[in-house]
């Protein structure tokens, strides 16, 4: 917890993620990971990225995580899932251990959750919520509610091809 607090202080007295210059808005964000190390999202730019917002008290979130774990393992290299946990870091770490989560879990300051979700296009403020970026860095899909394997597969294959306008 101490390291988490230290990281939040580094992020500007808990006011939220760090913004970096000269990148599209969401790629400028950084969040602390479970060890309190600040992780810029930009490090994953260039891959298909799924950012999953979840909380330990949310049963549908916990139910879909094993799908993400299997999906990450099946598409290692082409896909990067990033979890953003909206909860206490200790609890998030326990879930990550229990469900053997094989992708990074970042931590949102719980006081900022509603604003954060809205910033990511989720005005209803509900979790689970998952946002998908294609390899060019464009946000293409914002999915509210739990995801099943079939929908994940269809989104992933859609993201492999250029946007149809």
């Amino acid at each position: 917890m101490a390291r988490f607090i230290a990281a939040m202080l580094l992020l500007g007295a808990g006011l939220g993620p760090v913004l970096a210059a000269n990148l599209p808005p969401h790629w400028q964000l950084s969040y602390p990971d479970l060890d309190g190390q600040v992780q810029p999202l930009s490090q994953w730019q260039g891959r298909t990225v799924a950012v999953n917002f979840w909380a330990t008290w949310c049963p549908p979130c916990l139910r879909e995580i094993p799908e993400f774990v299997a999906f990450q393992a099946a598409h290692e290299g082409a896909l990067q899932i990033v979890g953003i946990g909206m909860d206490e870091p200790e609890k998030l770490a326990n879930v990550a251990r229990t469900l053997r989560i094989n992708y990074p879990i970042l931590v949102s300051d719980p006081r900022q959750n509603l604003g954060l979700l809205s910033e990511w296009g989720n005005n209803r403020g509900v979790v689970p919520y998952t946002v998908f970026f294609d390899a060019s860095g464009e946000m293409r899909i914002k999915h509210r509610g739990p995801l099943d394997r079939e929908t994940l597969e269809s989104y992933f294959s859609e993201l492999q091809s250029p946007r149809k306008d």
Binding site: L62, N94, R97
Partner: peptide, 12 residues
């Protein structure tokens, strides 16, 4: 079942 996931190893 839900709380179990976020418990530490001793509690689990």
């Amino acid at each position: 079942s839900t709380q179990f996931m976020s418990m530490n190893e001793d509690d689990q």
